[in-house]
Design a binder for these strands. Structure first.
Length: 337
DNA sequence: AAGAGTTGCAACCGCATAGAG
DNA sequence: CCTCTATGCGGTTGCAACTCT
């Protein structure tokens, strides 16, 4: 930990937030909180840039927004992270990596900042103490001889392998020029090229891309282009009959709904597998708990959950398909490709 | 008791992206 | 298209509280 003197020196070299001098920084006072909360309740969120002036605050808009989002919003839940929330964070992180906002969007009342802090201060250490690499969710390999090539440990993993996190600079955003447009050109990737690797829950296309945002972009583009809306697993089996969507009424569902359903199915799958592991003698009629679909969507910028898989037919198809394919691999514990 | 070291979390920063003009 | 502005995100820092020596 850096000494306070070094902190102060580093602080002094930073430019003030928003480049404006004379604005207050640091911890918020109760008076400031009240001013901000009252104003946002009265006028609503948004226009953060001009909000401080209108609300009579000597803060930059960014700071106001952050304070509201992370602390003052009525929906923000304070207090200890519950064990089930912790479990959900762990599973979401394994699927999504450091997409704190995405993770927070699935945990009602928790903010991305809170989850990020909880991860960095608790969960990552917890995983390390269990011999698990918090970044990859794979067992930590202690190699006494760094020159020796360590063989892949995937075959002995108790946990499904994580979604490998590409470097931050290469992670495509939901709308990204790097995402193939899925037009009819031969160079673009088509939706039927998306497969699901034989590793449980690992989302990969046939070109080796396994980023969820990327997949979301692909699936969305596929929908936009009325193409072959079928996804195949790695064995070439059709596992998702998205063409039904075309025949469904009123295709106003946005791609986020599809992604949400997809993500939910992955999480539910994990819950299901987890339950099966905890209960060696499976209960009849046991169903995966739909942890996510019941959650309110308090992050409007996240992928909304309003259209649950139960509501929309193709969501059910997705969930069923994913469950059948991935559960098979999960139980067999053998990434056989 | 006191100083040093550590922890946890609020807050900040820089950058990327969307959308308006 | 291009530029500008607003917003959102993830990484990082600052510092109070706590623990250790």
């Amino acid at each position: 930990m850096a000494s306070s003197s070094s902190k102060n020196s580093s602080k002094s070299t930073k430019t003030p937030c928003c480049g404006k001098v004379g604005l207050k920084r640091g911890p918020w006072t109760p008076d400031e909180d009240e001013l901000l909360a009252n104003y946002v309740r009265r006028e609503g969120e948004g226009r953060w840039r001009t909000l401080p002036k209108r609300a009579g605050l000597l803060r930059c808009g960014k700071s106001c927004r952050l304070r509201w989002m992370n602390y003052l919003r009525p929906s923000v839940k304070r207090g200890q992270i519950a064990p089930d929330e912790e479990d959900l964070i762990l599973r979401l992180h394994r699927l999504l990596g450091n997409r704190w906002s995405l993770i927070a969007g699935r945990i009602p009342g928790r903010t991305d900042n809170e989850i990020k802090n909880y991860w960095n201060t608790h969960l990552s250490k917890k995983l390390i103490s269990q011999g698990i690499d918090p970044r990859t969710h794979k067992p930590l390999l202690i190699n006494p001889n760094p020159n020796e090539v360590v063989p892949s440990s995937s075959s002995v993993l108790l946990l499904p392998p994580p979604v490998v996190e590409p470097p931050a600079s290469t992670v495509p955003k939901p709308i990204n020029p790097n995402i193939p447009s899925l037009d009819n050109s031969s160079t673009s990737i088509s939706s039927h090229e998306i497969g699901f690797g034989c590793n449980n829950n690992e989302v990969v296309d046939n070109k080796g891309n396994n980023d969820l945002q990327y997949l979301k972009g692909i699936s969305g583009a596929a929908l936009d282009n009325n193409q072959d809306h079928n996804l195949k697993n790695s064995d070439g089996l059709m596992i998702m009959g998205l063409q039904n969507m075309e025949e469904d009424h009123d295709i106003e569902y946005n791609n986020d709904d599809i992604f949400s359903s997809f993500l939910n199915s992955l999480i539910n799958e994990e819950v299901f597998v987890h339950q099966q592991h905890q209960q060696p003698q499976p209960q009849p009629q046991q169903q995966p708990i739909n942890v996510i679909n019941s959650l309110p969507d308090h992050h409007h910028h996240q992928y909304p959950l309003g259209s649950s898989a139960q509501t929309f037919g193709y969501g059910v198809i997705m969930e069923a398909a994913f469950s059948s394919s991935t559960t098979h691999h999960a139980f067999n514990q053998e990434p056989d490709c």
